[in-house]
Computed example of a mutant assay.
Amino acid sequence: MANNVPTEPSESKAKRKELTTIGFIIVVLFPLLFAGIFGIYGFCIWMYNMFSSVHS
């Protein structure tokens, strides 16, 4: 029968590091990345409208 409990401390540390890394990616990196992407997209649209639209 397979035992899923980590037997060595290195396995536990590796698992904790993996979960910390995934948490960082989900909580910090993805929101910053998407905010930057949408900010750049909005800026590009704003600049396009500034230079291409007809002003009266």
Rank of each mutant, 00 (worst) to 15 (best):
S56W: 10
A35G: 05
L33H: 06
E8T: 15
G36F: 03
K13W: 10
N3S: 11
F34I: 07
P9E: 07
Y48R: 11
A2V: 01
I25L: 08
A35L: 09
F43N: 04
S52H: 05
S12E: 05
N49G: 09
E8A: 10
G42P: 00
N4S: 05
L32A: 04
V5A: 08
V28W: 03
M1K: 13
V54C: 03
G36V: 03
A14H: 09
I26L: 11
R16K: 13
L33W: 05
Y41W: 10
L19H: 12
F38H: 05
T7L: 00
A14K: 13
G42M: 02
I26M: 07
F24N: 14
K17W: 10
N3R: 09
G42H: 01
S56M: 03
F34Y: 08
L33V: 06
H55L: 08
E8M: 07
K13I: 11
T20E: 12
F34V: 06
I22V: 14
F51T: 13
K15T: 12
R16Q: 14
S12M: 09
S52W: 07
F34R: 01
I45R: 06
L32S: 11
A35D: 06
L29H: 08
P9C: 02
V27M: 00
G23D: 09
I22L: 07
N49H: 07
K17L: 14
P6H: 12
S10D: 15
Y48H: 15
S52Q: 07
G23A: 07
G23L: 08
I25F: 02
H55Q: 15
S53K: 14
E18G: 07
I40R: 05
M50W: 02
G23K: 10
R16C: 04
G42I: 02
V28Q: 08
N49R: 11
K17N: 15
S56P: 01
R16F: 10
P31I: 02
N49A: 09
V54G: 03
G23M: 03
C44V: 12
T21C: 09
S53P: 04
I40V: 10
F51Y: 13
S53M: 12
I25Y: 06
G23P: 00
F38R: 06
A35H: 01
T20N: 15
Y48E: 14
N4Y: 02
H55E: 12
K13D: 11
R16W: 07
T21Y: 11
G42R: 07
V27Q: 02
S53Q: 15
E18I: 10
E8H: 14
L29K: 12
M47W: 14
S52L: 05
T7H: 04
L32C: 05
S53W: 13
V5Y: 06
P6D: 06
L32P: 01
T7S: 09
I25P: 00
K13A: 12
V54R: 03
N3I: 08
F43W: 06
R16N: 12
F24W: 11
S12D: 04
N3Y: 03
M50R: 08
K13F: 01
G39L: 00
S52V: 09
G23N: 12
L29M: 13
F38Q: 09
T20G: 11
